[in-house]
Computed example of a mutant assay.
Amino acid sequence: MEPTLESSAKNILPEVNIHIVGRNMLQNQLLLSFLKNEIGADGTYVPTVREASLTGGAENMPTNFLVIDTKDVEIDKLWYEIALWKKEVSGNCYLALFNVEPKLKIEKKAMSMGICGIFYNNTSLHTIAKGVSAVLKGELWYSRESLKRCLLEIRPLLNYNEPHLNTYLTLREVEILTLIASGYGNKAIADHLNISEHTVKTHIYNIYKKLRVSNRLQASLWAAKNLS
């Protein structure tokens, strides 16, 4: 089942570097070429996570996005390489996995490792482009079912400064936070509540500030613990 997050894969960010990681050179070239055309990004392909060399990271520099192929890869070894790599890099970087076997059920571990999205081995190129676009806009790319299932389970594995339960949220902010935790993207939230996307973004900014979180995953974890 494809995620229900809605987003356009066109013209999302002017400066994005896509790094396709994996040993299938032909496949990686094709995927990279497709994402370049759909998103308007620069990019490279490399065999392993450790060989991914990032550019930017400072203000006004490109955003980096690693899309990692999991086909014929030892998953435990991949987690180890990602953990080492994350200790050595800084700056604005997103990670996603593709060619994932659904039966592996790695969503919980992926979330705990800070992976922003998962693309299964039956995911189309157009859906991958749509998902990359959504992640670059600050969304998560997991199915709603897996997101709901994993949120409470991975909460102890994540470390962030959680505000007190008495944090004041308006009724509208609670509505939006609940939808975020259910896997809705900004457009879907706007359509559901009959408000503009700009208004949704303003509410999300205020929610993040009040909860002292920086992304949808952390906000969703807070909601799973405190709004259920």
Rank of each mutant, 00 (worst) to 15 (best):
E81S: 11
I82V: 14
I82S: 02
A83E: 13
A83L: 09
L84N: 11
L84T: 10
W85T: 04
K87C: 05
K87R: 15
V89W: 02
G91R: 03
C93F: 15
C93M: 12
Y94H: 14
Y94D: 06
Y94W: 09
Y94I: 02
Y94F: 15
L95S: 01
L95Y: 08
L95H: 02
L95R: 06
L95V: 11
A96C: 03
L97D: 05
L97V: 04
F98R: 11
N99I: 01
N99D: 06
V100M: 10
E101D: 15
K103Y: 10
K103A: 12
K105C: 03
K105Q: 10
I106S: 03
I106G: 01
E107I: 07
E107K: 08
K108P: 00
K108V: 08
K108Q: 13
K108Y: 04
K108F: 05
K109E: 14
K109N: 11
K109C: 02
M111R: 03
S112A: 14
S112W: 01
M113G: 00
M113D: 10
I115H: 00
I115V: 10
C116S: 14
I118T: 04
Y120Q: 07
N121R: 08
N122Y: 10
T123G: 04
T123P: 01
T123F: 02
S124R: 01
S124W: 03
L125N: 12
L125T: 08
T127K: 09
T127P: 01
T127M: 12
I128P: 00
A129P: 05
K130L: 10
K130W: 06
K130I: 06
G131L: 03
G131S: 03
G131Y: 05
V132K: 05
S133Q: 02
A134G: 08
V135M: 15
V135N: 06
V135C: 11
L136Q: 08
K137V: 01
K137C: 09
K137F: 02
L140R: 08
L140D: 03
L140T: 07
L140M: 09
L140C: 06
W141C: 11
Y142M: 02
R144Q: 15
R144C: 08
E145I: 10
E145G: 09
S146E: 15
L147R: 10
K148S: 14
R149D: 14
R149K: 14
R149C: 05
L151A: 07
L151T: 06
L152D: 13
I154L: 09
R155I: 09
P156N: 08
P156Q: 09
L157T: 10
L158I: 15
L158P: 04
N159W: 10
N159P: 00
Y160D: 01
Y160F: 15
Y160I: 01
Y160L: 00
N161S: 15
N161T: 13
E162I: 14
E162K: 14
E162M: 14
P163K: 13
L165T: 10
